[in-house]
Amino acid sequence: MKNRLEEFRSQRGWTQQELADQVEVSRQTIISLENGRYNPSILLAFRLARLFQMPIEDLFLYSPEEENHE
């Protein structure tokens, strides 16, 4: 699933580690999320959306076509 995590993180000037610390995951998870290799759990997605103070669908871009290839 595509997301705009890297864009919003960069806007706030946070490193991957700083973002990871705030949502209590490893830096590797943030890297994987930003690369689109890993889809977060609904809880992590909500934590990230709440941290960036935006609706979840602004952060994670759902497309049904992509779902068929996973």
Partner: peptide, 16 residues
């Protein structure tokens, strides 16, 4: 404390 928090997060990391 910061390292403890990091180790704890890595241990419970959902991807891991």
């Amino acid at each position: 404390g910061a390292e403890a928090r990091r180790v704890s997060a890595a241990e419970r990391d959902e991807r891991m």
